[in-house]
């Protein structure tokens, strides 16, 4: 019981032995004026650098994401673009075919003209 009382007393007296000064936060190494100057310097110099680094990383991540998304998207409509390409090309091919057919038909008529002309020129002679 006595021992218990002593232990209790010691426990209660523990703060007396504690090194409160040593456990406290040390005083700041700079004066308040110096601290303000440092804060300004940090805001002006270091923050933009950190921010741009973060932004560059974000940008790179965004680019990568975008590229993959575009690639995926392109895969989904690659065939329709090819179809469009082919149908577009077919339109020009049909137009070119039309030119050829017209030219051929014109040539046939040219031969006909030549034949008629020859007949007309022969007639008076007979």
């Amino acid at each position: 019981m006595r021992a218990l009382t002593i232990i209790l007393m010691l426990m209660l007296a523990a703060p007396l032995f504690a090194d409160t000064r040593g456990a406290n936060l040390p005083p700041p190494p700079v004066t308040p004026e110096q601290r303000d100057a440092l804060m300004v310097e940090f805001r002006e110099k270091e923050t933009p650098a950190i921010r741009s680094a973060v932004e560059a990383e974000l940008e790179a991540r965004y680019r990568k994401e975008l590229e993959t998304r575009l690639a995926q998207e392109r895969d989904t409509y690659a065939s329709s673009i090819n179809n469009l390409w082919m149908s577009n090309a077919a339109v020009w091919a049909v137009l070119a075919l039309f030119i050829v057919l017209q030219a051929l038909s014109a040539r046939k008529r040219m031969a006909e003209i030549a034949r008629l002309k020859a007949m007309r020129e022969e007639k008076p002679r007979q």
Binding site: W92, L95, A96, I99, V100, A103, M110, I113, R115, A118
Partner: peptide, 25 residues
């Protein structure tokens, strides 16, 4: 009888234009 040379030339020009146009397009 030979067809009119002028017309024959225009026939060739037409075909050439068609080919050039088709390739270009």
């Amino acid at each position: 009888p030979q067809p009119n040379p002028t017309s024959n030339r225009s026939f060739i020009i037409a075909l050439a234009l068609a080919v050039v146009g088709l390739i270009g397009a």
